[in-house]
């Protein structure tokens, strides 16, 4: 240890290094702050009195503190309905997606299926070529009759082929000896999958599960296409409505019998955004490592 230290001390630090270090620190810190700033601005706006916001504009600290936006939001039944839909879709959708993905990925990973190559291509081809928006829309809405059903938010996007291949590759990397020893003890394929393979795959399953959960929570496209009933709209779809229709909040509150002159329509939009990202921001620091490990598996190792 001491020799290394002495050795390092002998090397002259080039003059530009300090400047470079300072530049890197500043750049990274500025980027990080810029990533945070819009959220703070939105949070501040959601706690500002509507009149003050109209007068002073958006500021990083509420010029006049008010919880009126949140009070209005929680007075309407819409936000509770939407929360329920979002939670249902995220929880049930993630569970079903994870199950269907695993049931596809495990057999393909075993290397003992005669038709594995053909089935792999069957799935891979869907990543290369798509029927596109219109035929999919016709199928789901007209022929499957899934319009205004909560399942349309889950079933048509149940399996992501990319996630399937990620999981398959992970399963293949598990040493075959593990399954082999269980087979000698008389276990069948299904027992091996549930008792041996899945328990040692929890980090990979957590990663894929989080990918799915985030995709479900943030999805508004399905609702935009197929959901007209307001009680079936997830939170993200409500936000899209607010963006498309400036009077959406007024109409929503009008239905609840709130006088339209008293409606904090701008700040309640921000409050909705805050309520929507709330769960993500709370959970995100704890699950971040799964996402980072997931993307590394996906792109470096493949």
């Amino acid at each position: 240890m001491t020799t290394i230290k002495q050795h390092k001390a002998k090397i002259k630090v080039p003059a530009g290094d300090k400047a470079l270090t300072i530049f890197c620190y500043s750049f990274v810190i500025i980027f990080a702050i810029l990533c945070l700033v819009p959220f703070i601005l939105g949070l501040s706006a959601s706690f500002t009195a509507e009149v003050a916001l109209a007068k002073n504009g958006y500021q990083f600290w509420p010029s006049e503190f008010s919880t009126a936006a949140y009070e209005l939001l929680f007075k309407t039944s819409q936000i509770f309905d939407s929360y329920k839909v979002s939670i249902f879709v995220t929880v049930v959708g993630t569970a079903l997606s994870l199950l269907a993905t695993t049931l596809l990925a495990y057999p393909l990973s075993t290397g003992k299926l005669k038709y594995a190559g053909k089935l792999n291509f069957f799935i891979y081809f869907t990543m290369l070529f798509t029927g596109g928006l219109v035929p999919t829309y016709m199928l789901v809405s007209r022929y499957l009759g899934m319009k205004d059903s909560i399942w349309v938010l889950i079933i048509p996007i149940l399996i992501n082929p990319w996630n399937m291949f990620l999981l398959r590759n992970f399963f293949s990397s598990i040493p075959g000896s593990l399954a082999e020893s269980a087979r000698i003890d008389g276990a069948n394929d299904i027992t091996i999958m549930f008792r041996i393979i899945l328990p040692v795959s929890t980090p990979a399953l957590a990663t894929i599960g989080l990918f799915y959960a985030l995709a479900y929570w943030n999805n508004w496209f399905q609702a935009l296409m197929y959901i007209d009933k307001s009680e079936l709209k997830p939170l993200q779809a409500i936000i899209i409505e607010m963006l498309r229709n400036a009077d959406f909040m007024k109409q929503m509150a009008g239905q609840m019998g709130v006088q339209s002159t008293q409606i904090p329509s701008i700040t309640s939009k921000m409050a909705t955004a805050m309520v929507t990202i709330g769960p993500i921001v709370l959970v995100y620091p704890f699950v971040q490592k799964y996402f980072t490990s997931g993307i590394m598996v996906g792109s470096v190792k493949g």
Partner: peptide, 21 residues
């Protein structure tokens, strides 16, 4: 951690936040 945060938010929410600017 902060620089990855925006990736976790939907474009719908980002659009609302962009309005503030």
């Amino acid at each position: 951690t902060l620089s990855i945060l925006p990736y976790f938010v939907s474009w719908a929410v980002i659009a609302l936040l962009l309005e503030a600017f």
